[in-house]
Design a protein around this nucleic acid. Sequence first.
DNA 1: TAGATTGTTAATCGATTAACAATC
DNA 2: TAGATTGTTAATCGATTAACAATC
Lengths: 219, 219
Amino acid sequence: MSALDQSTDHDGRGGDKLSLGVAARLSRYLQVLTQAKKMGKETISSQELSDYTHVNSTQIRRDLSGFGKFGKRGVGYKVDSLVSQIRKILRTSGQHNIALFGAGNLGRAIASSDIFADHGFRVVALFDTDEDKVGREVGPHVVRHARDLKQVVGEEDIVVAVLAVPNPAAQPLADELVDAGVKIIFNYSEALLHVPPEVTVHTSSPAVDLLYALYFYLT
Amino acid sequence: MSALDQSTDHDGRGGDKLSLGVAARLSRYLQVLTQAKKMGKETISSQELSDYTHVNSTQIRRDLSGFGKFGKRGVGYKVDSLVSQIRKILRTSGQHNIALFGAGNLGRAIASSDIFADHGFRVVALFDTDEDKVGREVGPHVVRHARDLKQVVGEEDIVVAVLAVPNPAAQPLADELVDAGVKIIFNYSEALLHVPPEVTVHTSSPAVDLLYALYFYLT
DNA sequence: TAGATTGTTAATCGATTAACAATC
DNA sequence: TAGATTGTTAATCGATTAACAATC
């Protein structure tokens, strides 16, 4: 993880790496803005963004003004152009191909939703190891056998793999993915995955998020 | 959101509110520890915890030592007792009842998994509005019609609702939940939900997490 | 113009980390 | 004992926020 490296220029314009906090907040703004755009909203104020993200409005303005003057005083920010700007800052303007593993309930839910598509991610392949599932259609995908993963990862330039597989299957699969050259593993199983340092694992943990929310309710 | 209120005592022993950062990190430690325990691991060092959580090992020791001397020098922390200690600190030692809405792919995936159960959350009811689904069995649950939600929420002391419903259904359902007295809404739809200030909404956003991970890969 | 909201400053506060003594 | 790892200090650095001038 070189994510902790911090740039010494703090005006943010230098094309240098964002700090962890800034990158995380920009991502959240993008989430809200994307949905606001879908709902036909044309402008949004830092205060409205604050209401949805729970980030202080001054900080939102500060985060954004580091990269340019995107807002209009007295009006707010144009939703549409702010989405483009943040995508540019996060360097995620393009399309990114992802491979999805596991065609169970969770895998099918992910494959049929547009949560990833809305942010420029395209599921290009859905894999399973169950021969009964291979060949079946799930949304726009035909389930492929996981033994083909290396070929597909190479051909389709896949950097991200999403794991919706049972816990015991996760580590062996992760090993194969690392071997095939995947750099980011999004893990929906609960398994603790061992990977080389150049590979990033993000383990989704709804229950942990819930514990956190509950703490502030209970106190 | 009173989550930003900060206590003025910083030793953490006073039974006062944790800061946002500390509470978030403790939750993450708990996630890893819970899984490590499942895998039969008996002790764990701050360095190992750091490898899995990407939190600096000094900070982990610092976070923990604020509440007591849980570790043994030269050995590490006992996984089992550390889990109990953190649960105590986060005040989530008990059981918490949750209601799950939506018996589609995602709802069924959540209902059949033990991600919530592992952390003391018990799904006590699964709702849908589709009459075809009502009455069907999903894991240990029988799908109930959402019109019964108010009764169930009252009877079962439900504080948390998990929404695995289509976007357009989310806001009307949130309104009903607020009316019924639910305090925490865990939103798996993409809809931006409007709720009164005493209710907390957490919107899950895998694509946003992915954007964030991708940024650090791309730079 | 009057009202609203941005962009920016300056001050404060908390988070982070290297280093190391303590001790298992 | 020797090695390992915790608990804690002290210094630094970045995040946060109130306040307000600028301006749409």
